[in-house]
Design a protein around this nucleic acid. Structure first.
Length: 261
DNA sequence: ATGGCTTCAGAATGAAGA
């Protein structure tokens, strides 16, 4: 089984690239998309369904938005925190950042974690609240299902080796101690970063800023992840960052990450 | 570098991303 995650930075702008990439990767069972940036009514469904894929979407106009593109029909689709939690604050439910479904014996939870803008900003506080709520959500999910795969644009680099230049990382969003601690609390529920099962070196990234020739110079960050519960982690056969789509004309600033179970 | 690009929405001396 292969699961991929890719922040496409607008599915309508990246539609041809997403289709071409899926066609070049016929064994991907689920492609988890983030930042689709489109309302459900305007999602380009037919491009995928014509290829025989099943499409599950949870989007909004302009910002955010997540989707599952699956080779087989998925079961038990859930969207938003309210699918498992009660009394979710409206501001944490209104941004469409979470969709999940079940394939075989695995629940795949696709998330787009808020960026946070800048440390101590209102958006940073929102990110921390969102992560705390995600922890509660995952505690509920783990009561029901043992095998869970979380993937997506996590917008946090947990280790210095995940950043091309960590020298001032403590002052930057995505690598501050508080964000790392919030993510570590989630991992401590029983999840492991499967990329590090296979690769312990630095220099492997999933996002490069559009500006300043960052990709050409490999000035990137590893912020797109697959986090697996114990049995899935043991079962994992590979985890690959495919940098080829980042080389396309008019690329997303993120590139896909694929795990094989 | 207070920014370098890119997207969306809608007409900004913009907002947001990361």
């Amino acid at each position: 089984m292969q699961i991929a995650t890719w922040n496409v930075n607008s599915i309508r702008s990246r539609l041809d690239q997403a289709i071409a990439w899926l066609q070049s990767r016929p064994y991907i069972d689920i492609l988890c998309l983030q930042e689709t940036k489109v309302s459900d009514a305007d999602f380009p469904l037919t491009a995928f369904t014509e290829l025989g894929h099943f499409v599950y979407i949870y989007g909004q106009k302009s910002y955010n938005g997540v989707a599952l593109i699956a080779r087989q029909e998925l079961t038990s689709i859930r969207t938003g925190f309210s699918s498992l939690l009660t009394d979710v604050a409206p501001e944490l439910e209104s941004q469409k950042r979470l969709i999940s479904g079940v394939i075989a014996d695995v629940r795949v939870i696709n998330i787009y974690v808020p960026n946070g803008s800048a440390i101590a900003s209102e958006k940073y506080e929102y990110k921390l609240k969102w992560l705390a709520l995600l922890k509660s959500y995952l505690q509920e999910a783990l009561k029901q299902e043992k095998n869970i795969l979380i993937c997506g644009d996590i917008n946090i680099a947990l280790e210095d080796i995940d950043i091309h230049d960590p020298s001032d990382r403590a002052t930057k969003v995505m690598a501050s101690d508080i964000e790392r601690a919030a993510l570590q609390e989630i991992l401590d529920l029983g999840f492991k970063d499967v990329f590090r099962k296979f690769q312990s070196d630095d220099g492997y990234y999933s996002w490069w800023d559009y500006r300043a020739g960052s990709f050409r110079r490999n000035h990137g960050w590893r912020i797109d992840h697959h986090y697996l519960t114990a049995d899935l982690y043991d079962r994992a056969l590979s985890c690959e960052i495919d940098i080829s789509p980042r080389k396309n004309p008019q690329p997303s600033d993120h590139t896909p990450v694929i795990v094989e179970l």
